[in-house]
């Protein structure tokens, strides 16, 4: 098995576990932790892709909510402080990668006659 096949297998396993988590969470868990979801069923299929993608986070938050472990202040703690870091990193990264991309770009004269470098294989 090569790396590419291993990566695809990991993705498939991730999706299968996510599907099991989605089935349990969207039928049992969601009613236990969110009053707004009780009696509301039509929106639940919309949540399936999200659970498939971030099921470890879903399990963690489900456990946190069930056990009431999150401190009240956490909910109100803003994350704007990280905005500057995110923006600066993104900006520097873009400038670097575009510069790098343009510096290795090759150009060639498109209108010159082709030159045969070697004899082709004889039939």
């Amino acid at each position: 098995m090569n790396v590419a096949e291993a990566l695809v297998m990991v993705m498939q396993a991730w999706g299968i576990i996510g599907a099991v988590v989605a089935a349990v969470f969207l039928t049992i868990g969601i009613d236990r932790i969110d009053a707004d979801a009780r009696g509301a069923y039509i929106f639940r299929p919309l949540l399936i892709p999200g659970v498939l993608l971030i099921w470890p986070l879903v399990l963690w938050r489900w456990w946190q909510t069930e056990t009431e472990r999150a401190a009240w202040a956490e909910r109100y703690r803003p994350v704007r402080a990280s905005y500057g870091i995110a923006v600066v990193l993104m900006s520097l990264g873009i400038v670097a990668i575009v510069t790098l991309g343009l510096s290795v770009r090759q150009s060639w004269p498109a209108d010159i006659a082709p030159l045969q470098l070697s004899e082709g294989a004889r039939q």
């Binding site: 929106f43 919309l46 949540l47 986070l57 909510t65 995110a86």
Partner: peptide, 27 residues
């Protein structure tokens, strides 16, 4: 991930700080 977690439910379930951090993936 951003599109799949854009429903109001996710904001409430993950709590705004976690949801916001997750959506920093846009950068």
């Amino acid at each position: 991930i951003l599109a799949a977690t854009s429903h109001d439910f996710w904001l409430k379930f993950l709590t705004p700080p976690i949801w916001k951090r997750l959506h920093y993936l846009i950068y």
